[in-house]
Amino acid sequence: MGSTERSEQPVITKGIDKFFLNFYDILKFVLRFFKEMFTPPYEGREFVRQCYYIGNKSLLLITLTGFITGLVFTKQSRPSLAEFGATSWLPSLISIAVIRALAPLVTALICAGKVGSSIGAELASMKVTEQIDAMEVSAINPFKYLVVTRVMACMLCVPLLMAYTGLVAMTGSYLDIHLNEQTSLAIFVQNAFEKISFLDFFSSFIKTLFYGFTIGIVSCYQGYHATQGTQGVGKAANVSVVISMFLIFIEEIIIVQVINMLR
């Protein structure tokens, strides 16, 4: 009887209702995060543990990807610059590309894939096996213990990893330039930093802070609201990655616009 009454509602308005209900839920979730982030007690140990996991999970992949990005980007850019006899501009071209765009994006996408999916799956499996309820009934605040620590760890680690990605990518680039143009390290560094301003570093840092927040909050939300059953776990992991990546691209566009207005 219940199901027939429900299905009388037209599909479109049902979709819209659901969207706004979700939107309201998400907003509540985000506000709760900011509220609980600033109220003691703080879960220092769990925060440190999460930071360690995030670094541990993504470091290898980031090293590899960062290095190859720098190396390949240098190789691909060389012919165009060589046409104008301007290969000496390579270091500054690469550093602009890496620091302004590549390092933040590469880091964010890798973290969305590795960290986002694992947070989504972990919280979802805790949810469906009632571990989150179990914390709640033993007077432990699961939101603070699970969500706040993970989101904050993402907000700290993604910027740090971005700096690391930048360093590794520049190393890859330097190796290639050193082998081909016999540029010394001192000259490479000097050229690389010529065209880079404080604003570039700052904007990349802000970007990655947003990306980290996005990855953390999206995957925690998905995990925390997983529906019953084991397939909910896979779904939460999957959706966490897709939505995080989608939001990261949108944020990228918006932040770049804002920064360009400041320039």
Partner: peptide, 27 residues
């Protein structure tokens, strides 16, 4: 109030990432 109510879940709901001892120590 919740400290005075014990809730035993259908499948135990033990925290998988902790040992039995840590599960008991946690609350």
């Amino acid at each position: 109030l919740r400290l005075k109510i014990g809730f035993c879940f259908q499948n135990g709901a033990l925290y998988d990432s902790m040992t039995v001892g840590e599960n008991l120590a946690f609350p």
